[in-house]
């Protein structure tokens, strides 16, 4: 009896942390699914903001049922994400990253100034709490399953080809544009989900929530965890939500710690921390290839992409 009591008391003490991890996991998925497909898009954060306002306002002002409001927010962002992908179809790499960061910041500016809808600088407050941890947990599971499918088999190989060599992919019947659009739309929807759940769980939205800091945080999670697989994004979300709470004494030095972690991981473990797990797993099965650690970032994707096993 005592164990059960201690587990439930641990859960009660840490429920907020778990909720935050789950929500950040969805946001990290949003960035990871794009990066893995070779799309350096950070638009997921902008859709996080749009999703949070859409779901929050539909529930608070229009009294929509939660499920419907979340679905509406996600579909809205899917549509906007598709439109954005068409607009940005010619952009690649850093140019795309910059354009999508600009999009995120524009969303923030609109949220700040469209006071009649968003409450402007005062934010949207008093949204009824309308989701449970269990709902979010199930959503994360579902999203992870979809992403796992997207990494395997034909579509997994195809997306790697789209990322590594677009021209080659085209020569092998891949309609590169369609695959990029898919990744972009999925990324938008995941960002929207994260935002919607955040609004419906923590009851208020500030225009500054989805600012530059959130962009950096989401990208840091994915880089540190590993962009090659959804498991890396999940690991990053867990670490970067949990560690700051354990080490509150560091306080405002956090940005420096993020920066240092980014540099260390990007330089020495380009596949992210999750690639260490994969390497360890391989080694224990006697197929060690420690050279994975040393290879350049082009080959950084951990072997989740090679679905051979």
């Amino acid at each position: 009896m005592q164990t059960i009591a201690s587990i439930s008391s641990w859960y009660a003490n840490n429920e907020t942390l778990i909720q935050e991890i789950l929500i950040y996991a969805l946001l990290a998925f949003s960035i990871q699914v794009a990066l893995r497909s070779g799309i350096f898009s950070l638009a997921g954060v902008g859709f996080y903001a749009i999703g949070s306002y859409a779901a929050g306002l539909l529930v608070k002002e229009q009294a929509w049922p939660t499920a419907l409001a979340v679905i509406a927010a996600v579909l809205l962002c899917a549509l906007l994400g598709w439109a954005l992908s068409v607009l940005l179809v010619r952009l690649r790499d850093l140019y795309l990253a910059l354009a999508t960061v600009a999009f995120d910041l524009m969303v923030g500016v609109v949220a700040l100034n469209w006071s009649s809808l968003t409450g402007g600088p005062l934010g949207t407050v008093g949204i009824p709490i309308s989701v449970t941890t269990l709902t979010i947990f199930i959503t994360v599971l579902g999203a992870a399953a979809m992403l796992a499918l997207m990494q395997r088999g034909t579509i997994g190989r195809t997306l790697v080809a789209v990322r590594e060599d677009e021209q080659l992919a085209r020569s092998l019947s891949v309609n590169v544009r369609r695959y990029r659009e898919l990744a972009f739309v999925i990324s938008s929807m995941l960002g929207a989900l994260a935002g919607a759940y955040h609004a419906l769980l923590f009851t208020d939205i500030q225009a500054t929530d989805a600012g530059f800091e959130l962009i950096v945080l989401a990208l840091t999670m994915v880089v540190i965890g590993g962009f090659g697989s959804w498991t890396g994004a999940l690991l990053g979300a867990i670490l970067l939500t949990w560690i700051p709470i354990e080490l509150t004494s560091i306080g405002q030095w956090w940005d420096a710690v993020y920066g240092a972690m980014m540099i260390v991981v990007a330089t020495f473990i380009p596949g992210g921390l999750i690639s260490l797990v994969t390497i360890a797993g391989r080694a224990s099965r006697g197929r060690a290839r420690p050279s994975l650690l040393r290879r350049g970032s082009a080959a950084a994707a951990p072997p989740a992409s090679s679905s051979g096993a």
Binding site: A298, A299, A301, S305
Partner: peptide, 18 residues
């Protein structure tokens, strides 16, 4: 122009799956 993150067979599968 082979993709380094995949095995040789998987590279050829890119053709076979076209």
């Amino acid at each position: 122009r082979l993709l380094r993150t995949m095995s040789v067979l998987e590279n050829v599968m890119l053709g076979a799956q076209a």
